[in-house]
Design a protein around this nucleic acid. Structure first.
Lengths: 346, 346
DNA sequence: TTGAAAGCGCTACCAA
DNA sequence: TTGGTAGCGCTTTCAA
């Protein structure tokens, strides 16, 4: 019997009540000692702190969230976690939120719209203080759900479309256009877009659109599309390059939907004996750490992921504090490296 | 006034009580309709479902967690999110947990022990059903906290040390030893360990130890250590390589603490005019997607991250269901590629 | 500066 | 198969 009690005291977490009992004050006072310390006598505060230490008090935030108005949870919904695509954003976001004592609840849709709906519903069931979600093109019900929930929402990565509340992201059409323009400026004429492109990856589709529009403006032949629904991987980039070049041997400029795809494309081109950047130009998207170490180093687009994470955190915090919604365009840079030739050669 | 009420009905989430009221049953019945549907008459169940649909019911899991015994939250504590090091694990883990309706609450220590303590405490305050955490070497208080919490804990990535409860990971000493052995077998003799190595990255230290022990066994000179506390990045790999080679020009075999570091080292070696793998051999750790696309392709270690994620999910589920603790060693492979020479040249 | 009391939305137990 | 009742541990008025 004594043992059992012992077990319980070791196991069962202490509560505000238990420490109130030990100090000989009301639960209320203990609560205030945590939440509004200056309303509690200093000496008492010390005693309470001591008791908490001794009893190893860990607050129960489920109870806190239920009783209070907010829950200190921020739901973060991403479409993928591989290849640092969003990992860096989540990393920055999480750290920035930490100082406000907000906890990240993570969900990964893997580019599946039904999954997205399920996950958003699930996240809302935790009554989060706010939600951050990749993209602005959601399952229609997700939009509705989020809107009706009354929870602040910050959409990330993309800002082109109807925005629920606030957004922090890139202009993907402009990026696609810049990728194509870069190739055209350097004298490449027959363009292809290559990579993994999920049905629900609206961002990739926007970049492809930007590219097609630019090609059209320049009176070039239509952009050849070589895409698949699979996960982005060098092997996919390699396979798509072989296939594409077999069917369209005249292609001399390739925009890859991601750097990992470009890595594979580069390998394929080398195996085919094509000279890069002389015979064929190649540009990626994402600026993975490895890109500058390829031979030749990969020309690509560097989105400022750190800024997206940081600004999203700011937007989240602002909205939680009832600030006005806001849409922020984040910068990106074209990193000119070795897989596209110099402009003087045009 | 009417407007205000309207506003409230749009905003305030419906509760079990509100849908109970609409259907004309007790809260209890509605709860059971969700949790144990077969204890509710089919017709009634349909009515309830309809009402939920109409009122856009989203359960309040804070309340559920508080009232019930479990909270359906799994705390996941990682040390980094960049470079796919743990992103792939989190990805797999999250998906596997999803089917059991467990939500991932994410925390990132960035290799900071104090941060780890703070984050673990914070996660425990959500009364999680279980906790998954990278590594077995924690802040001493973390160990105590986790142990005393009574929450199932699965330690990931490493299994070498005192384990709190269950673990799923790699034998890092063996990996370090294998890396060195690979170099030695191919005739490299003067070895260096190069990369980012945080004070709290016990895994990297174990690999380095395995390497040093093997070198000793073979009667080689002591392994040269070229490390820094910074984040792993190709630029760091490059800088460390320059420095290290300046001081120790005889080095002919380099073990890199990560592939990204190896990318930079490779670039440095090429800039120095060293021939890889003839003059110097190079082996990485991690098998990033880009590694097979380097020139020469990077010889490296491939840990089965997918398996770690999957097995961790299984261990978590098993422990939540009160199964016995278990430690699982996960496989890894040495990917022999172009940065180390063939064995026949020895 | 402190305490009493009500209640957040749900689950769990027992009775009907 | 259904409902009543009692909390879970905290926050939040309101009074003292």
């Amino acid at each position: 019997m004594a043992d059992e009690v012992d077990e319980r005291t070791t196991r069962a977490p202490s509560t505000l009540a238990s420490i109130a009992g030990r100090v000989g004050v009301s639960v209320n006072t203990v609560s205030r000692a945590l939440r509004a310390p200056n309303t509690v006598r200093a000496e008492l505060r010390r005693e309470i702190a001591k008791a908490m230490e001794e009893l190893n008090y860990v607050p129960n935030r489920l109870a806190g969230g239920l009783a209070g108005t907010r829950s200190d949870i921020v739901g973060v919904v991403v479409t993928s976690l591989y290849y640092s695509e969003f990992a860096a954003i989540v990393d920055t976001l999480q750290s920035a939120l930490l100082s406000s004592n907000l906890q990240v609840m993570l969900a990964n849709t893997r580019y599946d719209a039904d999954q997205e709906l399920k996950l958003v519903r699930s996240i809302l069931s935790w009554r989060p203080a706010a939600v951050a979600i990749i993209g602005v093109d959601h399952h229609p019900k997700v939009d509705e759900l989020l809107r009706r929930s009354g929870v602040p929402v910050v959409e990330m990565w993309d800002i082109d479309g109807k925005i629920i509340d606030s957004a922090v992201g890139l202009d993907h059409v402009a990026i696609g256009s810049a990728q194509a323009a870069h190739l055209v400026e350097r004298g490449y004429r027959r363009l292809a877009f290559l990579g993994s492109m999920r049905e629900n990856d609206a961002r990739a589709q926007k970049r492809a659109r930007g590219m097609r529009e630019l090609a059209e403006t320049h009176g070039l032949e239509p952009v050849v599309m070589a895409t698949r629904q699979e996960n982005g991987h060098p092997d996919l980039g390699e396979a798509l390059t072989f296939e594409m070049l077999e069917r369209h041997p005249a292609i001399d400029g390739i925009v890859c939907n991601s750097d990992v795809i470009a890595f594979g494309a580069l390998r394929a081109l080398q195996r085919l004996g094509k000279r890069v950047p002389d015979d064929i130009g190649l540009i990626g998207f994402g600026d993975s750490e490895a890109s500058a170490c390829m031979r030749p180093a990969l020309t690509t687009i560097r989105p400022d992921r750190e800024a997206i994470g940081r600004l999203t955190a700011e937007a989240l915090l602002a909205r939680i504090a009832d600030g006005p919604p806001k849409t922020t365009r984040v910068e990106w840079r074209l990193m000119e490296r070795g897989t596209t030739r110099g402009i003087e050669r045009t």
